[in-house]
Design a protein around this nucleic acid. Structure first.
Lengths: 306, 306
DNA sequence: TATTGTATTGCAAAAAATGCAATACAGTAT
DNA sequence: ATACTGTATTGCATTTTTTGCAATACAATA
């Protein structure tokens, strides 16, 4: 019994669907399945009756649901009571992130932070996430939202907040690129040879998503046909949304893109894996009470997303 | 926030001592220290004020304590409500374990089991724990209390319940063995060469504790002087208690031995590590509802020891 | 009969928890 | 003074747990 599993169970009992729960919680189907197995194991009772097509609460499940609701409420109350009430702290914190992150990842944090520290100003700068680590290291920013670096400099502190799978995206309207993909799709279903090397790609100049895509092509023994190299995921989404080619972005970016309904995902194999999003700061800077406070608030916002 | 940490915190707030908490909960000091750090991190507040000599609850700590108490109470109530009330199940379950285990490990399980399944008879046989796995495999017993085997046959299911560190034990009264140990102790404190090869050892015929001791001697490049080989930890404790030599038993056995006050532990380096105690059954046999019920009850008794 | 949508499971990789040993510090004994 | 004892924290390696991917299994639908 812990916060995460209780929340998971509530989502399950709401949706009565493992797959939708997985989606909503940004988890894989197997994770959800196993998490529920653990819960059932822990209480020694089946909580959800499932028979291949439908899922519904057992009696024990209903009881558990009540329990989960009240326990989470208590937990929220506790967090509320214990919230550091430093309304008198004042100053500023410099934060850097991508445009997408500013309203997807950062907005719940900012909201909470403003409530707890109304006197502290947030100087928010946005730009390519690939610059984020460098800007923190150089001292230009206190905190950045970044993809977790493979190697973390010892002077840096990092904290994962969220994961988002990297997705291939393509235009969602008839155009040359889409036709090409459909042909490819046919070859795949007929188990014939096929090649991604002809498809025009919009790629990042650098950063984790570029690395992953490079690796993906290497693993297939092919080389991408690069239509354009741009800075930032938003730019990729934009260009793909204009029908210029295929690209790779974290699902997070896709969901928040203004081009969302002009874009579709492509189920290319193997998958590109998860894109871990988190905060990064100089350890040294975390001594600063304001920076530390921001860090704390961020962690807590993500420990208990409603 | 989960059951274990809440319990840990309650123990901490009771004892106001990390070391006593570690002892009571059978954990290492570092585990306790880190567990509390996690809790504090999670709520973003210090819960215990500690200043090198004393530990006391902060205001946040008191609030947390209330929370922990009521949350655990709710949890217990949930478990009570969900307890399978199969008072009508009847039959028998054959259980095998060492003498020590029968009252240390098994007794809370049996108590609970009898409450939930009053009509089910437990056929309890005791003997050397080294036989436990074999007896389950041969179908002689349904469930055994065993030390976790290094390699687990695929047909077997195993479930850890508890850990107990292996301890060197010696007589606690003046005798030849003790004198010898004292001389050894002196050499150690003077950082001179010393050898365990002269000390008479009472060892198991087989089993995990024998393997660990063998390995210990190998790592020192010595060979033990074996005074006696016996079957079962209780027998070792008895012979050591009679002043015949030095032995190795899980702390669990030591604490429950009738010779307890005639025995002392010896802090030999390196340590022998933990002795994992758990249940073992044929996967097949777990299909039997009675056996499964016992298994369940056992797990639950240990998931939430008061 | 193929296809789609759903949950479970084997397996390997990632993350978290744990214990040991080393360290640091303040009383207490020598 | 100095060594010793009891206490909590920290670096590191190990173990345990959780996770995701891919494969599997099954039923409803096309």
């Amino acid at each position: 019994m812990d916060v995460r599993s209780l929340q998971l169970f509530l989502t399950l009992s709401d949706t009565l669907s493992f797959s939708r729960t997985a989606e909503q919680r940004h988890l894989s189907l197997s994770t959800v399945s196993r998490a529920l197995q653990r819960l059932e194991d822990e209480v020694g009772q089946r909580l959800l009756e499932r028979d291949k097509r439908t899922v519904r609460l057992t009696l024990a499940g209903e009881r558990y649901r009540d329990y989960a609701i009240s326990t989470l409420a208590e937990w929220q109350r506790l967090l509320g009571d214990l919230r550091p009430h430093s309304g008198d702290l004042r100053g500023e914190v410099r934060v850097y992130c991508s445009v997408t992150a500013s309203y997807s990842v950062l907005s719940p944090i900012l909201e909470q932070f403003r409530r707890d520290f109304p006197r502290v100003e947030i100087l928010l700068r946005t730009g390519d996430y690939a610059d984020a680590v460098a800007r923190v290291q150089s001292g230009q920013e206190d905190i950045s939202v970044v993809a977790r670096p493979d190697k973390l400099a010892a002077a840096l502190e990092y904290q994962t907040l969220q994961h988002s799978p990297l997705q291939f995206i393509a235009p969602a309207f008839p155009c040359a690129v889409v036709e090409q993909l459909q042909q490819l799709q046919q070859l795949i279903s007929q188990e014939q040879d096929f090649s991604w090397a002809e498809v025009p790609f919009i790629v990042s100049e650098r950063g984790l998503s570029k690395d992953r895509l490079d690796q993906w092509f290497r693993s297939r023994g092919e080389r991408p046909r690069i239509y354009a190299q741009v800075a930032g995921h938003e730019a990729i989404a934009a260009m793909v949304g204009l029908g210029l080619g295929v690209g790779v972005v974290p699902e997070l970016v896709l969901h928040n893109s203004t081009f969302r309904d002009k874009l579709q995902t492509v189920a290319a194999r193997p998958r590109l894996g998860e894109f871990p999003v988190g905060l990064c700061a100089l350890k040294q800077r975390l001594d600063n009470p304001l920076v530390a406070a921001f860090w704390q608030v961020a962690r807590r916002s993500y420990a208990t997303p409603i």
